[in-house]
Measured scan of single mutants.
Amino acid sequence: DTLHVTQDGKHIELRGLSEEEIKLVEELLRRGRKVEEALKIIEELRK
């Protein structure tokens, strides 16, 4: 699936995420994380 995010005035499209990963990214962003940080966390969880 694809998640569309706008952060720091930039539109970012995150592709290839599972539904659970999207929920996790959304939660991390709500808690003030940056998109880059959220993606690093997803990458770690995929290992």
Results as ranks from 00 to 15, higher is better:
Arg33Glu: 06
Glu44Val: 10
Glu44Pro: 00
Gly32Phe: 07
Lys40Gly: 09
Ile12Leu: 08
Glu44Trp: 15
Ala38Cys: 07
Gly16Ala: 03
Leu28Thr: 05
Leu29Met: 11
Thr6Ser: 09
Thr6Asp: 14
Leu17Ala: 03
Ala38Lys: 00
Asp8Gln: 03
Val25His: 01
Arg30Tyr: 12
Arg33Ser: 11
Arg15Asn: 11
Glu36Arg: 09
Leu14Val: 12
Gly16Phe: 07
Arg33Pro: 01
Ile12Thr: 04
Ala38Leu: 13
Leu29His: 01
Glu19Gly: 12
Glu21Phe: 02
Ser18Phe: 06
Ser18Leu: 07
Glu13Val: 13
Lys10Met: 14
Glu20Gln: 10
Leu29Gly: 00
Glu43Phe: 14
Gly32Ser: 02
His11Ile: 14
Glu37Gly: 04
Glu13Pro: 03
Asp8Val: 03
Val25Asn: 00
Leu29Arg: 02
Glu21Thr: 02
Arg15Tyr: 15
Gly9Gln: 03
Glu27Asn: 13
Glu26Tyr: 15
Arg46Glu: 01
Ala38Asp: 00
Val35Ser: 02
Asp1Phe: 06
Arg46Trp: 04
Glu44Ser: 09
Glu27Leu: 15
Leu17Asn: 00
Lys10Glu: 13
Glu26Cys: 15
Gly16Leu: 05
Glu20Trp: 13
Glu36Asn: 09
Glu13Phe: 13
Glu20Gly: 11
Gln7Pro: 05
Leu14Trp: 03
His11Val: 15
Leu3Ala: 08
Ile12Gly: 03
Gly32Cys: 05
Asp1Lys: 06
Arg15Cys: 04
Ile42His: 00
Arg30Phe: 12
Asp1Thr: 07
Ile22Asp: 02
Leu3Gly: 08
Lys10Trp: 09
Ile42Val: 11
Glu19Gln: 15
Glu21Ser: 01
His11Ala: 07
Leu45Ile: 12
Val5Ala: 04
Asp8Asn: 07
Glu19Val: 14
Glu19Phe: 13
Ile12Asp: 05
Val35Trp: 05
Lys23Cys: 06
Ile12His: 14
Ser18Trp: 05
Arg31Cys: 05
Ala38Glu: 00
Gln7Asp: 08
His11Gln: 08
Leu14Cys: 06
His11Tyr: 11
Lys34Leu: 13
Leu24Ile: 13
Ile12Asn: 06
Leu14Gly: 04
Glu13Lys: 04
Leu3His: 10
Thr6Pro: 06
Glu21Pro: 00
Lys23Tyr: 11
His4Met: 09
Ile41Lys: 07
Ser18Asp: 08
Gly32Val: 01
Lys23Asp: 08
Glu36Pro: 08
Gly32Trp: 03
Ala38Tyr: 03
Leu3Lys: 04
Lys40Arg: 14
Asp8Ala: 04
Thr2Gln: 08
Arg31Asp: 04
His4Trp: 08
Leu14Gln: 03
Glu43Asp: 13
Lys47Val: 14
Lys10Leu: 14
Ile22Leu: 08
Thr6Ala: 07
Lys40Met: 14
Val25Asp: 00
Glu27Cys: 12
Lys34Ser: 13
Gly9His: 06
Glu36Thr: 10
Ile41Leu: 11
Asp1Ile: 07
Glu20Pro: 10
Gly32His: 05
Thr6Leu: 14
Glu20Tyr: 13
Thr6Gly: 06
Glu27Pro: 01
Asp8Glu: 06
Gly32Glu: 01
Gly16Thr: 04
Ala38Arg: 00
Glu27Trp: 15
Ile12Met: 08
Gln7Tyr: 01
Lys47Thr: 12
Arg30Met: 12
Thr2Asn: 09
Leu45Lys: 06
Arg46Ser: 03
Leu45Thr: 07
Leu28Pro: 00
Leu29Ile: 11
Ile42Thr: 01
Glu27Ile: 14
Val35Ile: 11
Ser18Glu: 05
Lys23Ser: 11
Thr2Pro: 08
Leu39Phe: 07
Gly16Met: 02
Glu21Leu: 03
Glu36Met: 13
Val35Lys: 02
Gly9Leu: 03
Glu19Trp: 13
Arg33His: 11
Glu20Leu: 09
Lys34Asp: 08
Thr2Ile: 13
Val5Asn: 06
Lys40Glu: 10
Lys23Val: 12
Glu27Arg: 14
Arg46Leu: 03
Lys47Arg: 12
Ser18Gly: 04
Glu26Gly: 13
Ile42Leu: 09
Glu43Gln: 09
Gln7Trp: 01
His4Lys: 05
Leu28Trp: 13
Glu36Gln: 13
Arg46Gln: 04
Leu29Pro: 00
Glu43Ser: 08
Leu17Lys: 00
Glu26Val: 15
Ile22Ser: 08
Asp8Ile: 03
Lys47Glu: 10
Glu44His: 09
Ile12Ala: 04
Ser18Ala: 08
Asp8Ser: 03
Ala38Val: 15
Leu45Gln: 09
Leu17Trp: 04
Glu19Lys: 14
Ala38Pro: 00
Lys34Ala: 10
Leu17Phe: 10
Leu14Glu: 04
Glu20Lys: 12
Lys34Tyr: 11
Leu3Ile: 13
Lys10Cys: 06
Glu19Tyr: 14
Arg31Leu: 11
Leu28His: 04
Arg33Tyr: 14
Glu44Leu: 13
Leu39Lys: 05
Lys34Thr: 10
Glu19His: 14
Leu45Cys: 03
Arg33Thr: 14
His11Phe: 12
His11Arg: 07
